[in-house]
Design a protein around this nucleic acid. Structure first.
Lengths: 222, 222
DNA sequence: CCGTATCCAATAAGATACTG
DNA sequence: CAGTATCTTATTGGATACGG
């Protein structure tokens, strides 16, 4: 008879002082980094997150949001009236993780196993533009680009080979793209013709812009 | 009677074209990134990995190694005779993930929850030096530093505020440190006196060197 | 020493229904 | 819409036995 079967298995913590191990305790659980990604361009509400993180269930999302909040990576906020809805937003420190995980994504894009035809969120496609732009191809091309992706709009400012992206209303743009995220991805990365999405404004700039994102060469299977 | 209870729950795959999601499928499982970290400075054998990844069990390590190999991130290799032992090493592409995950570690070091007193592997401490050095403090300081960390030795070349680290025999070094990883961490990050570890050679350089790694300021809990 | 195979217990994740 | 509650399935880790 085993009266006191001691639970030796603690809480599945890495016993490791390395910063990486700690990072994995902070955002290494399933879905956590994707949640941080979704908050990269500003606050989102529960239902948006649930919709854009295909396959996450409500209880896991709840759990992750609460864990990330406890760890100081995100916080709850209330949008100002008249919206007054509750949203989740990244803290300043949490936001600093975004460029790092974006680089992880860039690394993985070289995998021969990567399937770019899966669904993609508007945050993910915008972040990929920021990460995958080739500064050499961009040269000294400048412009202010608008993106209408379903309900959500972004403005990207191109200068010195760098894209500076912000979520927000489209104003004073040289060119405006209108598309669902997957269609935009098809044009930028899949070689689909520009005509498959909506383009208003400086068409020449648009044509040039969509060529600035070369697919990284796939790794060969040794 | 349920004859065909369909298994809808597939393989816990993210249904997401985003590179980050794919990265997490490649190296997002528990232990995977730590294994890549351990291979950052060259091949290691099974028992070394098991010893340095505190808490991993043999069957999980086996599983991860085989997954990572299938995905093209690591490969099996045999050390040349007379050693002739089997080792695991990162592929060129796998190695490219190392600086990215190192930056993840740097990000996490700012967490107020980080406990730097846990055990640390020699790879982890060497990688942290590469990541945490402050180029401004280093200025134009130059030198060739040797590290004897238990069985394993590293050589770090400091130039232009950058540390270039390689595993290998110590030769022609200006100064050589001898310590267990935790003791070296204590001196570099914990403010322990230099006398707590072994130092041979240019003591002045050693004193200067250990000040080049400022702890990042902790995030304040909002 | 270097793993692999098997079995068990604990935890995490997913599906679904349901509540304020 | 924003989550909880409950139940089921999958993954993990620990122990141990076994083969090269």
């Amino acid at each position: 008879m085993q009266l006191e079967k001691v639970t030796k298995q603690q809480k599945r913590i890495y016993d490791d002082a390395c910063g990486l191990a700690h990072a994995l305790e902070l955002i290494g659980e399933r879905w956590s980094m994707l949640i941080v990604r979704e908050l990269a361009y500003g606050p989102r509400r529960f239902s948006e997150l649930k919709a854009d993180l295909t396959g996450i269930s409500a209880n896991v999302l709840t759990q992750r949001l609460s864990d990330l909040e406890q760890r100081g990576i995100i916080r709850k906020a209330k949008l100002p009236p008249p919206a007054s809805v509750q949203v989740y937003e990244a803290t300043d420190w949490g936001l600093e993780a975004a460029p790092v995980i974006a680089r992880l994504g860039r690394w993985a894009a070289r995998s021969p196993l990567h399937d770019p035809t899966l669904p993609i969120s508007h945050v993910a496609i915008m972040m990929s533009l920021e990460t995958m732009i080739d500064p050499t191809r961009a040269g000294d091309l400048k412009g202010r680009l608008g993106f209408r992706l379903g309900e959500t709009s972004y403005v990207a400012v191109l200068r010195n080979g760098v894209l500076d992206i912000q979520r927000g209303e489209i104003a004073d743009c040289d060119v405006v793209f209108t598309a669902v995220p997957a269609a935009l991805a098809g044009v930028i990365y899949g070689g689909a013709p520009l005509e498959t999405i909506g383009v208003e404004g400086d068409i020449a700039l648009a044509r040039r812009f969509v060529t600035l994102f070369p697919l990284p060469e796939k790794v060969s299977r040794d």
